[in-house]
Nucleic acid binder design. Structure first.
Lengths: 204, 204
DNA sequence: TGCGTTAGGTACTGACCGGTAACACCCGTG
DNA sequence: CACGGGTGTTACCGGTCAGTACCTAACGCA
């Protein structure tokens, strides 16, 4: 009675979302916040307002769920790049927008690093399905960034791309062990300085 | 008989090392290689050629053992700085030596990132004894680096210190999800370029 | 010689892990 | 109305986890 009514009500507003999506959303939140190994499947099922059986009907194993979670995170990042590309036709402006986005994100306070990177730290086993996702993502990210630096006609685009990439990766991973004490604006300044250093000189 | 003979023999060559040291060494290797959460106390005791009871006579809990492991790693880093300071009286040369050491380390192949940073990724719980160790270490590292940049009379020493720090931190954490494809020499080039950018200009 | 400290060994606890079996249920479609 | 797929519920499996009780063996020191 109450239950059916509540079911129908919630079906109208939120619970129309399929269990699979709820599980993925809950897993993303818990994995990122508490670490992958620290979160059990029971906890995920509970947070998704479902149960373990349903989870295992949609995902072959916890490892596969982790891989799917990481694919989702990679997709979010890709969408971010798409948005910035749409907003900034100039590749250099796109680069700067990325820098600002990341700086804001890092200094947001609840930063816990890049989910993909964290997964690689937490899951060192070479044959883990999650690792393939991480490696593919990081490689693609690096290539895209290098292409962007090249399109922006900046000097030594590959090296500049790596500099920026490593700088931001370092900032994200460091923000969680040291407070983001003014890391945000400082990060932008550093990135801008590095870009500037690659605007003038043809090589060294 | 056999046992006592073997005991005495081993006591003469290697097993004079106290169980505590053996446990710490085994824990360091296993924690770094496989991740902290992935390693059980039984595995550590076995690798240290002792048993769980002896482990718990020397360490109050696994968490405390982890903290002690991290203190050991921090001390190793400190000794590295001491060695470099002895070898390079000039602060700028010391900085460059650090860069080279880190580049070699990153491209060594079996890099799995900074143990302290990895611990912070694996153990998000704010009150974990390991986190205090990590935070103290990272803060000290940053300050020391800034002091070194200042002593080297480089422009904007604090920002330069952060740039180098984040760059190397990013390189270490990235080396494990992408192969260290020529990361070594490229890292040195990047660091040198950043240092160079801070040698001339008084400010901006 | 005797005694206390330290280490090793075995076995255990209670909790939790990932994963599965069996069954009741709701609901849309025929 | 009957049916079947997706879902919820409960109980369970074997294994592993951190941590402990209890006893024995070896050693240093007096």
């Amino acid at each position: 009675m109450m239950q059916t009514a509540a079911k129908k009500l919630s079906a109208d507003k939120t619970e129309r979302i399929s269990p699979r999506e709820r599980i993925l959303a809950a897993a993303a939140e818990l994995f990122y916040r508490n670490g992958i190994r620290a979160v059990g499947v029971d906890a995920i099922a509970e947070a998704a307002e479902t149960n373990k059986m349903t989870l295992y009907r949609h995902f072959a194993s916890k490892d596969e769920l982790v891989a799917e979670y990481l694919r989702g995170e990679a997709e979010k990042v890709r969408l971010g790049w798409e948005r910035r590309a749409a907003d900034n036709p100039e590749p250099c402006a796109q680069l700067r927008a990325w820098l600002r986005d990341m700086a804001r994100h890092v200094s947001s306070g609840d930063e816990r690093g890049c989910p993909l990177t964290n997964a690689a730290v937490e899951l060192p086993e070479k044959d883990h399905p999650a690792r393939r996702v991480v490696e593919a993502f990081k490689t693609a990210q690096r290539q895209y960034l290098a292409g962007l630096c090249d399109a922006a006609k900046l000097a030594e685009p590959d090296m500049l791309a790596d500099e920026l990439f490593l700088l931001l990766e370092g900032a994200r991973v460091t923000a969680q062990s040291m407070g983001p004490e003014g890391m945000g604006e400082r990060l932008v300044k550093m990135g801008e300085a590095i870009i500037k250093a690659h605007t003038i000189s043809p090589d060294r």
